[in-house]
């Protein structure tokens, strides 16, 4: 770990100013991801700015019937909020599927979606990684890819030596639920305040795998809004993992279903929470039969690129995610009286 300066400013504006002024500065909230990376040498900031107490910790009703989650509210608090588990069960379930009680007590609404993509080579500073050290190449391609992406990667097998290559996945469960709920992200940054659709917060590697989100340097999440859902909407989060708890998803599915409309977000398959827009489009207005869902997922996954690697690669994710979507939607439709 490299020594760094630590600041605890008095308000959000000051925090933004301090981070914006130092190119190698980071915000610290719950620290459940950043502190790991500090210890591993993956993150090597000059300045760490603690914003834990600067943003709201409240969960408040919005006039439109939605809910506002203050950025400092913890994962535990959000998951336990009656309004959340009654109106947005997909979110409560996703939160409770993540990490451990101890981590959920620390992790925050603003911080959870900003955890870095996950990859054992990113976390190991002795191996090349385009995300950690741009231009050094990607060690994951052809290596241990069990948790890696099948969507949003180039059509052909990626070139491990190319500077844009990254096949890591975003590990947040919460973010998958927020993507399915069409949440909105409020931020404040050097350029002022703005609101970003949650589905646009995270980005694919593109030509710069070092960036996980569209946030500018010094831009801080202040709250996340959950839009109201029509009466009778049902939702669920299904996480499939190698052990029953305390593991990242192999794949996960957040599904929101109301009369004639279905929203599906996938976790563990891409550099960002993956909204299954093609499948949604095909299913919209029609009955959610097993056959229809499988056909829709076939279309969604047509461009999926299984990654070869040690221990047979990650091609199993393609049938797994299709089966998990089918099972999740079956559960939501069968429950209906």
């Amino acid at each position: 770990m490299k020594p760094f300066a630590f600041a605890r400013p008095g308000d959000v504006a000051e925090a933004v100013r301090e981070v914006a002024a130092e190119p190698n500065a980071v915000f610290l909230a719950g620290g459940t991801n950043l502190v790991d990376h500090l210890r591993l040498g993956v993150a090597r900031p000059e300045l760490v700015v603690d914003v834990r107490t600067l943003t709201s910790r409240e969960i408040t009703d919005l006039d439109d019937g939605g809910l506002r989650l203050g950025a400092a509210s913890t994962n535990s608090e959000v998951a336990a909020d009656r309004r959340v588990w009654e109106r947005y069960p997909v979110l409560a379930q996703a939160l409770l599927a993540g990490a451990t009680g101890q981590l959920r007590n620390m992790a925050t609404t603003g911080g959870n979606p900003l955890q870095r993509t996950r990859c054992p080579y990113f976390q190991d500073v002795t191996t090349p990684c385009n995300k950690r050290e741009p231009g050094t190449g990607c060690s994951a391609v052809g290596g241990y890819v069990r948790y890696h992406a099948i969507l949003g990667t180039p059509g052909a097998l990626p070139d491990p030596t190319a500077p844009e290559t990254c096949i890591a996945t975003h590990p947040s469960d919460m973010a998958v639920a927020l993507a399915a709920l069409d949440a909105r992200v409020h931020t404040i940054g050097p350029a002022g305040v703005r609101t970003i659709p949650f589905v646009d917060l995270h980005r694919l590697p593109g030509d710069d795998p070092s960036r996980d989100t569209v946030l500018e340097h010094g831009e801080l999440i202040t709250a996340i809004d959950l839009p109201p859902l029509p009466e009778g909407t049902r939702s669920a989060y299904r996480k499939v993992r190698d052990r029953a708890s305390y593991a990242f998803a192999l794949v996960s599915v957040a599904a929101v279903v109301d009369d004639g409309d279905v929203r599906i977000a996938l976790g563990g398959v891409a550099h960002k929470p993956w909204r299954a827009s093609r499948a949604e489009e095909i299913l919209r207005g029609g009955p959610l039969t097993e056959h229809a869902v499988r056909a829709a997922m076939d279309a969604e996954l047509a461009a999926a690129q299984p990654q070869p690697g040690v221990e047979s690669g990650n091609g199993f994710k393609i049938p797994l995610v299709a089966r998990t979507v089918a099972a999740t939607l079956r559960g939501l439709t069968e429950e209906q009286p």
Partner: peptide, 9 residues
Amino acid sequence: DPRIGQVAN
């Protein structure tokens, strides 16, 4: 990971 000769995980 036989390419680098270490345990990846």
